[in-house]
Amino acid sequence: MSPTRTRPHPAAVVAVAVLVMVIAALLWRSDLSGTGARNVGGTGSPVAIANGTSCPPTITNPGGRNNYRAGAPLDAPMGTGFVVTGVVRDTACRPLPGVRVQVWLQTATAGERDHRTSVLTGPDGRYRVDSDPMVAQFGEPNVHVAHDGAVGGAEDGWRSVWQRHVLDDGDTSATVDLVLVPA
C-alpha cells in the first residue's frame, strides 16, 4: 500500500507558478494582451503620408464600444489638462472634413458614462478634444475614440469604428487617428 500524499507534487507547484507568471505577463498591459489596445499617450507627432499610398482601415478593437452613447453632445466642455487629437482619413489617406468623432474617458470628477463629447473634423481632417486629466480605470488609464456613421439615424457614408487605447499615468495627451471605409 502506498502512502497517501498530503501535499501537492513539487512539479505541479512549479507548473502552476509558471502558468500564473505567463498569464500575469500577458495581462500586464492591454497592448500585449490581445485586446488591440495600444499605448497612444505622450506628445504625439503628425504622421507624414506620401501621395499615392493607402492607409489601412481602423478596426474596432475589443472594449472600444464600452460605455459608448450615440449622439454625445457636440463640443461639450470637458475641462483642461489632457488633450486628445487625431486625423480622420479615408483608405486613400485623404483627410475627411466634417466627420463626427466622439471621445470619452474616466477622470477624477466623472466616469466614462458621463465624460464625453463629440467634435467635427476640420478641413484637414483633424480633431481636438480638451479634457480634465484621465485617471486609471480597472488598473490602466484609457481613452475611447469613435466614429458612429449612423448618429441620429442619418448615415454619413462611413462605417462606424470604436477604439479603446491605453496611456501611462501622467500622460497629458493622446493621439488617435482613424481611417474610415465607406459604409
Score class of each variant (00 low, 15 high):
Gly36Leu: 01
Asn39Ser: 11
Asn39Glu: 10
Asn39Ala: 09
Asn39Val: 08
Gly41Asp: 01
Gly41Thr: 01
Gly41Tyr: 01
Gly41Val: 04
Gly42Arg: 05
Gly42His: 06
Thr43Ser: 12
Thr43His: 08
Pro46Ala: 12
Pro46His: 06
Pro46Met: 06
Ala48Glu: 14
Ile49Ser: 11
Ala50Trp: 00
Asn51Ala: 15
Asn51Asp: 14
Asn51His: 14
Thr53Tyr: 00
Ser54Glu: 11
Pro56Trp: 03
Pro56Lys: 06
Pro57Gly: 00
Thr58Ala: 10
Ile59Pro: 00
Pro62Ser: 13
Pro62Leu: 12
Pro62Cys: 03
Gly63Val: 08
Gly63Ser: 08
Gly64Gln: 04
Gly64Ser: 04
Arg65Gly: 04
Asn66Asp: 15
Asn67His: 14
Tyr68Gln: 06
Arg69Leu: 15
Ala70Ile: 07
Ala70Val: 11
Gly71Tyr: 06
Ala72Gly: 04
Pro73Thr: 06
Pro73Glu: 02
Leu74Arg: 09
Leu74Asp: 05
Asp75Trp: 01
Ala76Asp: 11
Ala76Met: 11
Pro77Glu: 02
Met78Asp: 00
Gly81Asp: 09
Gly81Lys: 12
Phe82Ser: 10
Val83Met: 09
Val83Ser: 12
Val83Leu: 13
Val84Arg: 01
Thr85Trp: 01
Thr85Asn: 07
Val88Cys: 02
Arg89Cys: 05
Thr91Trp: 00
Ala92Thr: 12
Arg94Thr: 11
Arg94His: 14
Pro95Ala: 09
Pro97Asn: 08
Pro97Gln: 08
Pro97Leu: 06
Pro97Asp: 07
Arg100Leu: 12
Val101Phe: 07
Gln102Asp: 13
Val103Ser: 07
Leu105Tyr: 05
Leu105Pro: 02
Gln106Trp: 10
Gln106Phe: 07
Gln106Met: 13
Ala108Ser: 15
Ala110Thr: 10
Ala110Lys: 12
Gly111Trp: 04
Gly111Gln: 07
Glu112Ile: 10
Thr117Gly: 03
Thr117Met: 04
Val119Trp: 08
Leu120Asp: 10
Leu120Met: 14
Thr121Asp: 02
Thr121Met: 05
Thr121Ile: 04
Gly122Asn: 15
Gly125Asp: 07
Gly125Thr: 07
Arg126Gly: 07
Tyr127Ile: 03
Tyr127Cys: 05
Tyr127Glu: 06
Val129Pro: 04
Asp130Leu: 12
Asp130Ile: 01
Pro133His: 10
Met134Asp: 12
Met134Ala: 15
Met134Gln: 13
Val135Phe: 03
Gln137Cys: 05
Gln137Gly: 14
Phe138Tyr: 15
Phe138Trp: 15
Phe138Asp: 15
Phe138Asn: 15
Glu140Arg: 13
Glu140Ile: 14
